[in-house]
Design a protein around this nucleic acid. Sequence first.
DNA 1: TTATATACAAACATGATTGTATGTAAACAA
DNA 2: TTGTTTACATACAATCATGTTTGTATATAA
Lengths: 205, 205
Amino acid sequence: MVRKTKEDAEVTRLRIIDAAREVFLVRGVSRTTIEQIATQANVTRGAVYWHFNNKTELFEAMREQVFLPLIDLIDDAVLNESTDDPLNSIEQYFCGIIQTLEQSITTQQTYEIMMTKCEYVEELAEVLQQILSTCQNIVRKLETIYARAAAKDLINRNHHPAQLALDTHLFFVGLLNMWIKDTECKYIRDNAIAIIRDHVQMKRK
Amino acid sequence: MVRKTKEDAEVTRLRIIDAAREVFLVRGVSRTTIEQIATQANVTRGAVYWHFNNKTELFEAMREQVFLPLIDLIDDAVLNESTDDPLNSIEQYFCGIIQTLEQSITTQQTYEIMMTKCEYVEELAEVLQQILSTCQNIVRKLETIYARAAAKDLINRNHHPAQLALDTHLFFVGLLNMWIKDTECKYIRDNAIAIIRDHVQMKRK
DNA sequence: TTATATACAAACATGATTGTATGTAAACAA
DNA sequence: TTGTTTACATACAATCATGTTTGTATATAA
């Protein structure tokens, strides 16, 4: 066989991650074997074990490729204090996430795996808690923005920013869930942006 | 050994399902072995294989115990045409589901398994599609109720029943997700009813 | 130019699970 | 009362996936 250069090896590594993602998607994380991943990547198990100690590490590598960027988009929305329409930045924030999903099949597949093709037990159990605390942050930031909107008299007086923030967050959690699962009918996928606009619109006075 | 009566056998069967649920919850569906279930149920694998052909059948049995009742609660809300506050029946519908979850640990655990401890592939892939079509039904029924509310002039004129229905549905999907995952902090679990009330309240004129 | 480390492939050893086959004692039907 | 079926426990066979070890050709450093 031909020993690869460092760059070649990195390509192999990425090919293995790609292969893992694709196999995870159709077989589920638990049922996929290292062998199946290797085959899909056109290498042997030897190569997989060279780059990753086990399936969990491979899964983490796949996750890291896409997970970090998405979450922090909210900061853009919060930091933009100068806008005269805070509700618009909320809309932009959520639309941005959806657009990322629409544009990147990799991200799409990874989310689908994480939402419907993996089991949150043992090492992965803590991921759920991470998600929970991320959610708390998002709700807090949404509240900040809604408070600004309230100050500008854009929303109904008797709706509290905290209520609005939680409601909007739950709405989006639901939307994301349905978006991911809606692989057949496509109604949610095709209308996500409009649905988000409607949601924000309904918050306006 | 002592051969059991028919009633005893049924008890064993239920014990096995209970055991399966508990093991599924901590190990995830894929990783649990029939052996682990048998041990948890204080029987041998022989008993498990006597009652169920394989793990999938056992999983289905667990699902059937709780899944059917919950969904159809919406019909009560829709059928109640005579109410003078349709928004209230929406609120009742969702509160009812949460209360069921609160009261039945079995239901709670089963939902937790189905949402975070199992992989929707192969035979189970179709379950996702079933859920999707159930969702469509719910949205349609919510729309009917919102239309009634609109007729009674309870909601803002420029919000369409279809929008409201989808928004509410996504809200509840999100709430359910967070409720299930919120095993530590408990904020969502402790405030679910109030959160639902707020949501419906915010739809009012 | 040579020694060494790299990037794998191939072979091996070892549990771990699964499904089935067999054994058995007691319930139940006749 | 006896034959048959039920409700399991136990033993067995076969597969499968994992992790490790070994082998090897080549890139790379010295």
